[in-house]
């Protein structure tokens, strides 16, 4: 069904759908090859999404299931006519916790600031400074930090949090005129443990029996600490 519907679209519309689905196409592909790649991608994405969803989410999806997936609009032309501002003319950065290992940050830079950097020969880039904080104290006490270089055109980022049971803030910093210019500091977020406090090998049989009866294998989140690792993810 998806293929039939794709075949009804012009090449221009197909390329729009490809771009909206994040598909990078070789420039010399013909129409049929574009349709092939798009159909595969849409199916693959759907299967991946379905298998990743928890049962609670799957049930909720049925509430909104008026149209079969195959009948849903492939592009968002009409909606995109409603424009939201690209920026709000303030320098600020916000931090949101997605899960104990990942946070999302978004920021705004005023047009004046962007222009200043674009026109300055001494502007040497922007970066996010991720601060891991010491406890919950009134003073900003930094335990550790790392930097993520970003472009002036960027406005959001997913950040891997190396430590759990720790608090974080993000600083938005520019290197300009051989100096570091602090543009904004985010709110603080606390990344919790994200797993049971005990390690499996430390559990006594009684506790282990209770946890098994609690259905650890059905939890939405893995019950024990997973080996650290992962990658920093770009928005």
């Amino acid at each position: 069904m998806i293929r039939t519907r794709l075949e009804e679209l012009s090449l221009e519309a197909l390329l729009l759908v490809a771009s909206q689905n994040g598909l990078d196409l070789e420039p010399d592909l013909d129409r049929h090859e574009v349709i092939d790649q798009l159909a595969d991608l849409i199916l693959e994405n759907r299967e991946e999404r379905e298998s990743a969803n928890s049962v609670t989410v799957k049930i909720q999806q049925k509430k909104y299931a008026l149209l079969r997936d195959d009948e849903a609009p492939l592009t968002q032309d009409k909606v995109d006519e409603i424009e939201l501002p690209e920026r709000y003319e303030i320098n600020r950065i916000s931090l949101m916790l997605r899960d104990p290992r990942w946070a999302y940050t978004y920021w705004d830079l005023s047009s004046a600031k962007v222009r200043e950097y674009q026109e300055s020969s001494r502007f040497d880039g922007l970066y996010l400074r991720v601060l891991q904080l010491e406890g919950h104290t009134e003073e900003l006490r930094i335990r550790d930090s790392f930097e993520i270089p970003i472009q002036v055109s960027d406005s959001s980022w997913y950040i891997y949090l190396p430590q759990q049971n720790a608090s974080y803030r993000i600083q938005l910093v520019a290197r300009n005129n051989h100096r570091r210019e602090l543009l904004a500091v985010s709110n603080e977020v606390f990344a919790p443990w994200g797993h049971l406090r005990e390690r499996p090998e430390d559990l006594d049989p009684h506790r282990m029996a209770l946890y098994e009866l609690c259905g650890l294998e059905y939890l939405e989140s893995p019950p024990f600490e997973e080996p650290t690792g992962g990658r920093r993810m770009e928005s």
Partner: peptide, 9 residues
């Protein structure tokens, strides 16, 4: 926590 996929946001 939440009851969504993977347990958080």
């Amino acid at each position: 926590s939440s009851w969504g996929s993977r347990g958080y946001a």
